[in-house]
Design a binder for these strands. Sequence first.
RNA 1: CGGGAUGUGGCUCAGCUUGGUAGAGCGCCUGGUUCGGGACCAGGAGGCCGCAGGUUCAAAUCCUGUCAUCCCGACCA
Length: 570
Amino acid sequence: MKASELFFPTLREVPSEAEVLSHQLLLRAGFIRKATAGVYSYLPLASRVLKKIMNIVREEMDRAGGQEVILPIVQPAELWKKSGRWEVYGDEMFRLKDRHNRDFALGPTHEEIITTLVDADVHSYRHLPLLLYQIQNKYRDEIRPRFGLMRGREFIMKDLYSFDIDEEGLDVSYHKMYEAYNRIFQRLKLQYRVVEADSGAIGGNESHEFMVLAENGEAEIVYCENCDYGANTEKAVCSLEEPKAAEEEQLEREKVHTPGQRTIQDLLDYMNIPKEKQIKTLIYYADEELVAALVRGDRELNEIKFKNVLGCNQLFMADEAAVKQLCGAGFGSLGPVGLPLKTYIDLEVSQMKNFACGANEDDYHFINVNLGRDFTPAGINDIRNAVTGDSCPVCSAPLYSMRGIEVGHIFKLGTKYSEVLEANYLDQKGREKPMVMGCYGIGISRTMAAAAEQGADENGIVWPLPIAPFEVIIVPVNSKNEEQMQAAWSLYEEFKQEGLETIIDDRDERAGVKFKDADLIGIPLRITIGPRSLQEKQVEIKKRTAKDVELVPLDAVSSRVKLMLKEMSK
RNA sequence: CGGGAUGUGGCUCAGCUUGGUAGAGCGCCUGGUUCGGGACCAGGAGGCCGCAGGUUCAAAUCCUGUCAUCCCGACCA
């Protein structure tokens, strides 16, 4: 491809609408342009990257026994009403009406349509298992689209749905997908972790997320370097460390005047009480009832875990006015002693002795509070967020935490959809049974953004070779120099013969512009043809990731490039 | 939906307080000089200042409404 003909409008400055790195870079490098909030056009470079990602995904889905289908994006409301999700999905579903005033949705996901499809034509155990997948646009009218392609309203997604005769069958399908996903992300050359995930509203009993590691990913995960345990912090189990060897003696409880001291940090500064010797008292509305949650001063309450413990539908923080009325003190002076609420404490708190907390009287705290003697909890549960240094629930080694971008998510659905949508089959004995389903998604467009995010440096994107829009870019330093251009064109022809995906920067631009653009769009290898080396019948080869260049004789370039590419794809 | 901010050539932004014929840099076009990390000189094209009302002799500027975009939060396969 000639750079002079390639449509890649690069920008020198960062468009003000872009906040996160991948968004900025994809805009600047001429990969995407916004049509409206959360909806983007993919320009030629992006199109090439997406195709490569899709092809890798496609190959692995096929290898795992999947069959590709193309499903409707415009879907009738009846299907969604039948599954109950017409209401459940709420405002997040793009809805439209046809000329007859009938309701439709733009598919946010395809469980309904595919289950109906399978139901219509699969009736026997003989035809199961069945693994069908699609790679298509999906639509979600996000409350707040953001981060460019990371959270769009229109996005490209691969979804595979598995249909099995029973749970054992589902286990097999799930495992196949688990393996396929690992192959995919390895082939994409992304740094990622598989983590246990909360299966959320979708239901099912097992679920894993595939997270591409990135500093400003939207999810926090913890993982173990000793074993392969990993989990979303929402889900990560905090096991209790061994009880302290020397039991501290219980001291007399004391009330201390602490004017204006409200936060954990305040108390540390004011009275030098370490955060680990304080407890945080948080008041929540669990549906209608006010309850208290206690965690150690330096910990964070995990609302999801807490909600699961309580088994309530809604959980949100109480407002200060209500708290003050009920407890007699504002947020900064709360504590469990004499608190007229059900009090749930974190496992860790149950181990603490002689700790400090609010006295339920403004500007007063207690010190040397002890569980049992001073208050009685309604429950002792794991209700805090896991953090770096916690011990792994599997092998007890220390856990590390990191941020990640969720690019894949696999679920066991069970019979949730097959039951309501009546996707049944007859087993060997002629009995009618619901199919057991799984669903397995990969955000294709999000994966592109995640790759850009993960690989970027100060000069631009650094694509992993397997998904780079082109493999090599040839840069003649001076397009008006015939000798250079001749060498460039002959290399270009040679590369083309060899099947290398090559750009030749034949634009009449200064060298600096060409180098900047080559770096920005992130081509893995750059061949520079300049007067210095050309005199010696040599050219320079530079990896996008390397600082230095390698001088290679003209007649050895193509074999050297092929070798380098081969090494890079290992 | 709550809180905050912003809408001025393709991109980044100034001008608005104090109303008086719309600016800069980058990009684009022409010519020239340059040519190894986003060159320089000269000339040029391009904007009903988001939109609609209002105030005024006069509105990018003041007022009202509206739309859009972005950030934070709630939410989230």
